[in-house]
Amino acid sequence: MFSKLANAVFEQSIADYHKYDSVDQPIANPYPKDQFEHLLYMKNWIDTVQWHYEDIIRDPQIDPVAALVLKRKIDASNQERTDVVEYIDSYFLQKYAHVSPNSDAKINSESPAWAFDRLSILALKIFHMREEAERADASAEHRAKCQEKLNVLLEQRTDLSTAIDDLLSDIEQGKKFMKVYKQMKMYNDDDLNPVLYQAKK
């Protein structure tokens, strides 16, 4: 089951990050580059670092210059995230290249990789909500509210995991087919962002 594998790798990545809990620590991907787990670990590591970037930039006392530098890092992280999603979809395109879709096969609203993207973010929500539900210096009311939210997130992970496995099974059986569109982000492109290409004139 791909979702079970993904959830395990995501949890490993989050745990590895929080050993040092620093956005500046380099990734130490434990999986060989030719393994699917390598992509999953990389995907979640990017998400985890960006999660903490987003925390830092919301500091009301942050220096404006530091905030701008951090905004640039978040932009770069978003591009990396999109790139890895496309690598994951390429993996599944290759894996199911031999499958001939049924004549009545349908396309899904999102590709498998974007569903894994949501599962990765969900793993981070679960980790941090659990921290809040167990935070010793928080009030009992705070912990109880966070536990309620954590229960919902855990149920959501079960549902999303099932949906992902069902989608991949449907693709393998020809009931659904993959069609991947590149994201074509414009704001990072010197030729497509008006601010950037006008600055070159």
Rank of each mutant, 00 (worst) to 15 (best):
M184V: 03
V152I: 13
H18R: 08
S161G: 15
K176N: 09
W51T: 01
A199L: 12
I14L: 06
P32M: 13
K125P: 00
L124R: 10
V69R: 10
I126N: 05
F92Y: 12
R81Y: 09
Q61V: 10
L153P: 00
D190Q: 10
L93P: 01
I57T: 09
Y187G: 01
Y187H: 12
F177P: 01
L119N: 07
K95E: 07
F177W: 08
D189K: 07
D16N: 05
E37R: 12
D47S: 09
Q183E: 12
W114D: 09
F36W: 06
K179Q: 14
T82W: 02
F116C: 11
E110Q: 14
A199R: 09
T162S: 12
E131K: 09
F127Q: 02
L192V: 10
F10W: 03
R135H: 10
K182Q: 11
Q35H: 13
L154M: 14
D16Q: 07
E155K: 15
E134I: 01
D55P: 00
A133N: 02
A15T: 11
M178D: 02
L39T: 01
Q198H: 14
V152R: 15
K149S: 15
A76F: 04
K71D: 12
F92Q: 00
V9G: 08
N102K: 15
E80T: 01
E54W: 05
H98V: 13
E11C: 08
V23W: 04
S111Y: 00
N78T: 13
V9R: 08
T82P: 00
S103I: 11
K182F: 07
L153C: 07
D170V: 09
M1K: 12
S120Q: 09
V69E: 09
K182P: 01
L68G: 09
P30D: 04
A138G: 02
L154E: 15
T82N: 05
G174Q: 03
Y181D: 07
S3G: 12
